[in-house]
């Protein structure tokens, strides 16, 4: 299964269900992990804007990584973190102009959107089709 994730911010209602779906799809230490997507609610009326990794063609995170620990998955198109190659310099965290790479201080790992191996769960649970997937 390999789907394309499409974001339509105009449809976002700021409910942040995507964040919960993401956190539960990426569990850490026996519980939900840090979310890789953010939806900023705007009021009134109930609106919002989701921000998630754009998987840039010429990505700043990939360019600054000194150990090639950020690698594009040819199948899904997602830029993935190869944890065994990472030396935790966190250059990617500071370099991403969209703030879409995070550092988990407790577990000492870099995290970013991995498109759920081709089936983004944020889109599956989005009630307003602000996040959609296409085959």
């Amino acid at each position: 299964m390999n789907k394309r994730l499409q974001v339509t911010p105009a449809r976002c209602i700021g409910c942040r269900t995507c964040e919960i779906a993401c956190a539960f799809s990426h569990p850490a230490g026996g519980g939900p992990g840090p979310t890789r997507i953010r939806a900023y609610p705007v009021k009134p009326p109930e609106r919002g804007v989701p921000v998630v990794c754009l998987q840039c063609d010429s990505a700043a995170c990939v360019r600054v990584c000194p150990t090639q620990a950020l690698v594009r998955d040819d199948r899904t198109g997602a830029i993935l973190v190869a944890e065994d190659r990472c030396i935790l310099c966190r250059a990617c965290v500071w370099a991403c102009p969209w703030g879409n790479v995070g550092y988990d201080e407790g577990r000492k790992v870099i995290h970013k959107c991995d498109l759920c191996a081709g089936d983004p769960q944020c889109a599956r649970y989005c009630p307003s089709r602000a996040l959609e997937t296409f085959e």
Partner: peptide, 22 residues
């Protein structure tokens, strides 16, 4: 490198909102 990752993200959201005229 003068803005932290969290604020970069929030600013990205604000920029998208601006574009949408929300």
């Amino acid at each position: 490198f003068q803005v932290c990752d969290r604020c970069h993200r929030e600013q990205a959201g604000a920029r998208f909102l601006d574009l949408l005229g929300k």
